[in-house]
Design a protein around this nucleic acid. Structure first.
Lengths: 139, 139
DNA sequence: ATGCTTGCAAACAGTTTGCATCTAA
DNA sequence: TTAGATGCAAACTGTTTGCAAGCAT
């Protein structure tokens, strides 16, 4: 017996692999443009559109996650849910040191009637480097 | 003795007041465009640029906050820090029912070296209305 | 062979900016 | 009087999309 709904078939193209590899090889939180440049370093014929399409695709597959930061989305290999810290001065993004609070999802689901799938926490502050820079410029 | 740095002087223009009023008069989380339309309802000569400028200005004054949602920033009168819930189907934004966890800021500051000023939590899920809609369309 | 994917370029959405003019203080 | 604020339109940034050609299965 066949499935009534058409199975979406995804193909492992060279470009798709390059995009995933690029995300995988970075510990920071690259923008789409960063990924594009990394991919281009391996194959300079890949288009930006393909990078964007694959980034969205991989996000849909839950292979990667995106962090909405000012100045554009940042991508991240999805190993587990975790929070991020973004520097309000330079835009640098690092992982936060607090655990993901799964119970909060249930609390909000109960409180709002929404079917909660996840939550994202973004801390805002100034990174050590920018604190330095600001201290030197002070007054 | 004079202050060495020049004080920034802000003016209370009619347009600025209209923008703040518009945000104040809404309990939902309007986009810049929503605010623009509300302002235009009172004065159809106010430009979009002025609305954007004042939205950013008021954000800088901490009079309002912005929630980064897919499809554009949402604005909110800042009464206190609180989390938001965004519907992944229709984009609706409502306030979450969990308290703001101030201790988390300290924990992250200690853990990362960042000078944390705040954090924003955005829950993702499907609002009651869209759950209905999806149920009706289901297989 | 089939139809998902690509590359290109053009389209897009949301937002910002240069500049002459206006206006709050 | 004067520097901040405005309105307009053009510029910009990040991202998406239409279409013909390409390639994984």
């Amino acid at each position: 017996m066949r499935r009534s709904s058409v199975a979406i078939q995804r193909r492992n193209t060279r470009q798709r692999t390059l995009v995933l590899e690029a995300v995988r090889n970075r510990r920071d939180h690259p923008t789409a443009e960063d990924i594009y440049l990394d991919v281009r370093a391996h194959d300079d014929r890949v288009s930006r559109a393909t990078v964007y399409r694959n980034l969205r695709f991989l996000e849909g597959e839950h292979a990667i996650t995106c962090v909405k930061a000012p100045g554009g989305d940042r991508f991240d290999l999805r190993l587990d849910d975790h929070a991020h810290v973004v520097c309000t001065e330079c835009g640098a993004v690092v992982d936060a040191t607090v655990p993901y609070d799964r119970d909060a999802d249930d609390a909000v689901a109960t409180g709002t009637g929404y079917a909660i799938t996840t939550h994202r926490t973004i801390f805002e502050g100034i990174c050590p480097a920018c604190q330095q820079k600001l201290a030197n410029t002070a007054n």
